[in-house]
């Protein structure tokens, strides 16, 4: 086998995925930097409905107001908790926001066009985030759900008068604000960039070095493919702005992975992966995090397998 030729092919596939994906990643980090600097997130809480059920539903769409991917969503949620957001609404926001996001919509559209993958990704994400959020409305006491660390900041803000105690940053001037946004984007780009490079390298290797007949056995199995893509999503931790382009390399129409498994990758992955689980542990109690990982996993796997067995795409 011609080794140099194979490396050349790997490189072309790698750069294709990377160039397409990194553009959406950069747009995402830039927007999230601008939001970090210019938008006062606490203003939004006032618009949420009072009733828990409706607030959970509204919370699942909050992401369109703050286009943050999974790396940015945890600090934003923590800040919203300090401003009095109900825990269940925050969990729904946390799970839905990485997908409920115009940049993720654009990258998913660019990879799959308008069709079952795009629509399915949004519907399944809503079902998952809202049902998990509604389950958490049953537990009204934040102390049972949040980690002691986040509870203490809540307590402090309560002493300061219902959230007004936390200093609210002044809206910055345009130019210094822009520079600050760019510096935020810088950190986030390097942080997420490493996952993108690893994910891209894996996707390009699978297409170049792995015999496709071997892969086909797993890829076309309605159950195994779903489990494999759930595991891959968890381990790869790629940013939700770019995961559609990575997923595309597994969805080749001749011998690609089942549509159900691609949807699991695109719905479970943004909610739960190694990186986000670690960040969840900083805000929630361990038991809460176990539910936040297991429930989305089970729901997405069940939907994925059901789709594979019952729907012809």
């Amino acid at each position: 086998m011609d080794v140099l030729g194979q490396i050349q092919i790997f490189s072309t596939r790698f750069l294709g995925i990377f160039i397409e994906a990194v553009s959406f990643l950069l747009l995402g980090t830039l927007v999230s930097g601008l939001i970090e600097v210019f938008v006062r997130k606490e203003d939004v809480i006032r618009f949420l409905p009072r009733r828990a059920g409706r607030a959970v539903f509204a919370g699942s769409f909050l992401g369109f107001l703050f286009p943050v991917c999974e790396c940015g969503v945890v600090p934003v949620t923590r800040r919203l908790y300090q401003k009095g957001l109900p825990v269940a609404v925050g969990i729904t926001f946390l799970l839905a926001a990485p997908v409920m996001n115009p940049i993720v919509f654009a990258s998913t559209f660019s990879a799959f066009g308008f069709g079952v993958v795009l629509v399915g990704r949004y519907l399944i994400t809503l079902v998952m985030a809202i049902s998990v959020g509604l389950l958490f409305t049953l537990q009204r006491s934040p102390a049972k759900l949040l980690s002691p660390g986040s509870i203490s900041t809540l307590a402090r803000s309560a002493v300061g008068g219902g959230g007004a105690g936390i200093e609210t940053p002044q809206r910055p001037h345009l130019l210094p604000g822009l520079i600050k946004s760019l510096r935020y984007a810088h950190d986030e780009f390097f942080d997420m960039g490493k996952y993108l490079v690893i994910g891209t390298a894996l996707a390009a290797s699978m297409q170049t070095f792995v015999p496709q007949e071997e892969l086909r056995k797993v890829a076309t199995d309605p159950v195994l493919s779903v489990l494999a893509m759930a595991l891959l999503a968890f381990v790869l931790s790629v940013c939700s702005t770019t995961d559609a382009i990575i997923a595309l390399s597994f969805a080749n129409p001749i011998n690609g992975f089942t549509t159900g498994s691609i949807l699991v990758f695109l719905t479970f992955g943004p909610m739960v992966d190694i990186k986000s689980t670690l960040m969840y542990l900083g805000v929630f109690r361990r038991k809460t995090v176990v539910y936040m990982v297991i429930l989305p996993l089970l729901i997405s796997i069940l939907i994925g397998i059901w789709l594979n067995l019952n729907v012809r795409f």
Partner: peptide, 14 residues
């Protein structure tokens, strides 16, 4: 303000 600017989302660049 700029000196302290660091994304609260990340551990910084490694």
């Amino acid at each position: 303000d700029l000196l302290l600017a660091r994304s609260p989302h990340t551990q910084g660049v490694t």
